[in-house]
């Protein structure tokens, strides 16, 4: 059985090879950069697997990295400052068991925010990444009412010093983009990268549609769950230990 080897496969093999020859590094299989000029494809379904047993309550590496990457400088106003990702500490009142986990946009397959948006500014890319098209967002905030995960923020004041990769301005709604700009360039989200570097590598990024990806293999062999799976919105962010 010989199949034509694509450039993508080659790159993937190279990446796995790189991991193999560098022991000690977390096993991550980065996606190849999409060739310039081609769009996001439904062949991919980008997602995360977060192992909460490796997530320490005091650690905010992912949150800090997100703020730096996305230019979320804030105004020291916790009620109105944007947060794409936050650490939630969960306690079971019956047993006292505690754990901590990051919560961000869950990039649902059936996103309520997209359903309710009057203009179609809330949208899902072909590869499952949920974004706000701030060119046509009118700032009605209905998506914030609809989101089950409280993942969205409204920009409450004028902004300056934005990152070129994350344009953001007053009067629009915003949320985690899963670092679409990094994914399109073949990278992985900033939170995942910093968790591997400064945390305990609790976060794994990958393509849930690719049966050979590390995330797919783990999801198919280990028990995973999603926040509020009962709502049926099918998030792309999976958790272990919640």
């Amino acid at each position: 059985m010989s199949q034509p080897t694509s450039r993508r496969d080659l790159l993937k093999a190279a990446a796995i090879g790189a991991v193999a020859i560098a022991p000690g590094l977390t096993l991550i299989a980065p996606a190849a950069a999409r060739p310039l000029g081609t769009g996001a494809s439904a062949a991919n379904r980008w997602g995360l697997l977060i192992d909460t047993s490796k997530c320490d309550a005091g650690c905010t590496a992912c949150v800090d990295a997100c703020k730096t990457e996305m230019g979320l400088t804030g105004h020291d106003r916790p009620l109105t400052d944007s947060q794409y990702i936050r650490k939630v500490d969960v306690t079971d009142p019956a047993s006292g068991h505690r754990h901590s986990l990051p919560v961000m946009c869950q990039h649902c397959a059936k996103p309520p925010c997209v359903d309710v948006c009057p203009t179609g500014a809330s949208m899902k890319r072909a590869d499952g990444i949920v974004l706000v098209d701030r060119h046509i967002c009118i700032g009605c905030r209905y998506c914030m009412m609809a989101c089950p995960y409280k993942a969205r923020s409204f920009i409450h004041e004028d902004q300056s010093g934005q990152k070129p990769d994350n344009p953001r301005g007053k009067g629009c709604v915003e949320s985690c983009t899963l670092c679409a700009h990094r994914i399109d360039a073949g990278g992985q989200p900033a939170c995942v990268e910093s968790c591997a570097k400064d945390g305990r590598a609790a976060m794994l990024f990958g393509d849930l549609n690719d049966p050979n990806s590390e995330i797919s293999r783990r999801v198919s062999t280990e028990a995973t769950s999603r926040i509020r799976a009962d709502l049926g919105v099918e998030p792309a962010i999976r958790y272990q230990g919640i």
Binding site: P118, I136, C137, I138, K170
Partner: peptide, 23 residues
């Protein structure tokens, strides 16, 4: 609205699944 200046967008872009748009 956060962007009342873009009100015309609510007429030019229409998401049929949104009850807001129907309104």
């Amino acid at each position: 609205l956060g962007r009342p200046d873009r009100l015309v967008v609510a007429i030019t872009h229409f998401n049929v699944k949104s009850i807001f748009a129907w309104n």
